[in-house]
Amino acid sequence: MGKAKIVIEGVEKSFQNKAGAWQEALTGVDLEIREGEFVCLLGPSGCGKTTLLNMAAGFDHPTGGRILIDGEPVSGPDPKHVTIFQNYGLFPWRTVLGNVEYGLEVQGVPRPERQEIAREYIDLVGLEKFAGHHPHELSGGMQQRVALARALAVDPEIIFMDEPFGALDAMTRYKMQEEISRIWQEKHKTIIFVTHDIDEAVYLADRIVLMSPHPGRVKRVLEVPVGRPRERTGYDFTTIRDKVFREFELVHHQDLEFQI
């Protein structure tokens, strides 16, 4: 595998709640993500997985430790590291084409050129017939494809995905997982993918970062040594799935004890 792309060292994050008391959302996170790797952050709600993603993406800052990308501390959002949000964040007043070309537009790429690139990525996600449509005319799965095309159009090195398929129905979800897996293999991006769905993590990830809450921390990092395309019913797949499931249950169990 490639060299270290993202290095997370002793990262902590605390928030001040309404009463003014400090609450730990994340504590002592150490993680190294290699170039071209597909990593899933998996855990129940409250485990700080989205917080960690937000900090790596530059939208938020750690209260302790540091996050390096390519050896440089993360100082803010960067077009080389694009985030795809759960609610898509598409601009409703722009068409599909207008949304996908946005990133190139603000970089000052001339219109004919950026539209050509945008169309290429619209084709890649299979929406060529919908380039002139507005987001609200598309289904949730199609909207998420637009968000994906918009992210890819600026040719980023890293894509951060925050439960991107959370709002989709099961069938669309499977389809999108296959799609993102195919595109990842084709485009060789580093992908950090937040999810609370075990199957999703096992289907997509090279490595699963299992997190647990109160306070949020990394519980275990699991390799998924299964070839692609993955068979959801294959022996390797179900074995790993069971393993992750047991670990996940353990996390929940401990969480329960913690609360009692």
Partner: peptide, 19 residues
């Protein structure tokens, strides 16, 4: 989220307002 997306693509302050 719109502002986040705009900042992610490094939109200039003026363009965030206008675009």
């Amino acid at each position: 989220v719109y502002i986040k997306v705009a900042r992610n693509f490094r939109t200039r302050e003026r363009d965030i307002l206008l675009k």
